[in-house]
Nucleic acid binder design. Structure first.
Length: 571
RNA sequence: UGGGGCAUCGCCAAGUUGGUAAGGCAUCGGGCUUUGAAUCCGACAUUCGCAGGUUCGAGUCCUGCUGCCCCAACCA
């Protein structure tokens, strides 16, 4: 625990306008020195990496300034919400490393109080029952350049409004018959202030409150009140709610009884290249079977990237690195990958696994001889994870890509007449290949130099390349799933005329290898265990694994400057 | 066209009484190397959307312009 605190001191968090604002509020003694934030997702889908940014921000700010952060389900629309989503949200936030303690709430917890406040608003002449249809309301709202028309309901008496609202709650009216609207200003240049709806009738049972209610408050009303009721001091949301702030403040000012004065602050939501963040479209990917589910490792959902092998530490680091600002921006996916590699590099034991195997026969090693070698599990710090024994035998698996019959000069791997080091083992020189009738190489032949045991030549002879291998006799088969971007374009969000967004879905985002060769000792690895397959990347054990047949997900490949220098791969 | 926002290196992003452009990612060199990984060293904005103005001095102040985002769901 305390061992890590003696490491290099954490760098001071980057400056951002929200931290500065909270700091200034604290200094000014605002809110009695209290800091309370909240993360308020609507349980209508799974959380994604964009939500992770918000979670880190809200819980992070609270923790940093000695405050707390609530987890609240913003469940005001029973048509879209589901218990499955609330479960997944709690699970994901917890997994990311944040704790709401006992402060898990629902906007629906406050339906009773919100209703009472609405009644007060009516009594104060600041809200009225409107009998316009949805269509009429839309038309009556005007446009951005023209003022709207006042609803006839605006002239209703307080008594009649109260009576109607009571009957709306009692279930006397069908969906859409009436709404409750705030009486603000139909000519406001801010469309959000043109008598916004507060309540609509919906005879639908609710995920949390069942059939208790048949009318439900709308977002603006319920959200501002929920914040005030909980005592939120800083209500952090994304930029698209900027126009709603004036309305938020109106509610805070005119509703009673309300004790607190929360402040809404907006920041730019996360956008990532090659990534779709729309909840609606992510749902379609799941429903239409383009992916295997919300937790498909190709999905940008927390559940997906968790299964993929991304760690909470990497995601938190990413959230810190991207910063917080008010300018819309799109972060390169490569930054997230950097954070993941950076974290995994420090925690994963190294093992050798051959993904696309070809046999290498050591001609000068007898059939039944086994040489036992030792391999360090974490070469950066040999003491950290110990070592393991490796059997070296006549028949080995090596990576197909590590052999070329007619290589370019920069190729440091195996080729006829060339010598390479087999990691932790010996120098091996290729003596030839065996081909089938089709002319395909089926086997590579070579000889090992017994004096180079461990990988160093006593004569000081150097070798350019080191490749990984596994004893064919001892290797176990495993399934390995290689992932690539789900979309082929950097901005899958861009609307292209005549083209459906699904057309940018990649056909090669998943490649399954059924016969990868793994070191025998790996066969006992637990689901979720993570390793670096040397020279191949970071991998984790997938829950689909069965006894005797492990399934690995490639979390992320290693950086590959050679491939980069050689140009794009043909695959 | 009304209102609300935003514009600093390829991508993020600091820059707050105006004082002479942080950092990260990416990229490019080089060292080291039993992972072409990691790591280490070095390079990388005379310039802050554009045009004027104020000032000894402006990314920071003023004026005008341009571009992009958001708002006309009984969604959030």
């Amino acid at each position: 625990m305390s061992a890590e605190s003696k490491d290099a001191p954490a760098p001071a968090p980057a400056s951002n306008f929200i931290r500065q604002l909270v700091e200034a509020d604290l200094k000014a003694g605002k809110n009695g020195g209290r800091v309370m934030t909240r993360f308020p997702p609507e349980p209508n889908g799974y959380l994604h990496i964009g939500h992770a940014k918000s979670i880190c921000l809200n819980f992070g700010i609270a923790k940093e300034f000695g405050g707390v952060c609530n987890l609240r389900m913003d469940d005001t629309n029973p048509l879209k919400e589901d218990q499955e989503y609330v479960d997944s949200i709690k699970n994901d936030v917890r997994w990311l490393g944040f704790d709401w303690e006992q402060r898990f709430y629902h906007a629906s917890d406050y339906f009773g109080r919100i209703y009472d406040i609405a009644v007060n608003l009516i009594a104060d002449g600041k809200a009225y029952v409107c009998d316009l249809t949805e269509e009429e309301v839309r038309k009556g709202r005007g446009t951005v350049t023209e003022p709207g028309q006042e609803s006839p309901g605006r002239k209703r008496s307080v008594e009649e409004n109260l009576d109607l609202f009571t009957r709306m709650k009692a279930g006397e009216f069908a969906d859409g018959k009436y709404t409750l609207r705030a009486k603000i200003d139909m000519a406001s240049p801010n469309m959000k202030m043109r008598d916004p709806p507060l309540y609509r009738i919906r005879h639908t049972s609710h995920q949390a409150t069942g059939d208790t209610w048949c009318l439900y408050p709308l977002y603006d009303f319920a959200h501002a009140l929920s914040d005030a009721i909980e005592g939120i001091t800083h209500s952090i949301c994304t930029l698209e709610f900027e126009n709603n702030r004036e309305l938020y403040d109106w509610f805070i000012q005119h509703c009673r009884p309300l004790e607190n004065r929360p402040q809404q602050i907006e920041f730019a939501r996360l956008a990532l290249t090659y990534t779709m963040m729309s909840k609606r479209k992510l749902l379609l990917l799941v429903q239409e079977g383009h992916v295997r589910g919300w937790d498909d490792p190709r999905m940008p959902t927390i559940a997906g990237i968790r299964r993929r092998g991304y760690t909470p530490e990497a995601i938190r680091d990413f959230a810190e690195k991207i910063g917080v600002a008010r300018a819309n921006s799109t972060v390169e996916f490569g930054l997230l990958e950097h954070c993941v590699r950076d974290d995994l590099n420090q925690r994963c034991a190294r093992v050798m696994t051959v993904l696309k195997p070809i046999k290498l026969v050591i001609e000068n090693l007898p059939e039944n001889e086994t040489i036992e070698l030792e391999a360090v599990n974490f070469p950066e710090d040999a003491a950290k994870m110990g070592s393991r024994k490796l059997p070296f035998t006549r028949e080995l698996w090596i990576e197909r890509e590590d052999f070329m019959e007619d290589p370019p000069k920069q190729f440091h791997r195996l080729a006829p007449g060339k010598e390479v080091r087999l990691r932790w083992a010996f120098f091996v020189k290729c003596t030839g290949v065996i081909k089938n009738e089709a002319g395909e190489i089926t086997e590579i032949r070579g000889t090992y130099d017994p004096t180079t045991r461990g990988g160093n030549a006593p004569d000081g002879r150097k070798v350019k390349g080191t490749i990984h291998w596994v004893s064919a006799k001892h290797a176990q088969d495993a399934e390995v799933r290689l992932y690539d971007q789900l979309f082929t374009v950097a901005d899958p969000t861009a609307e292209v005329e005549g083209q459906d967004w699904r057309q940018t879905l990649s056909k090669t985002s998943l490649e399954v290898i059924h016969d990868a060769k793994i070191e025998a000792h790996l066969s006992g690895a637990a689901v979720g265990a993570q390793f670096q397959f040397e020279r191949n990347g970071y991998f984790c054990v997938d829950p689909d694994s069965k006894p005797g047949k492990l399934v690995f997900n490639r979390t992320i490949g290693l950086r590959d400057s050679f491939a980069k220098a050689m140009g794009p791969k043909k695959e």
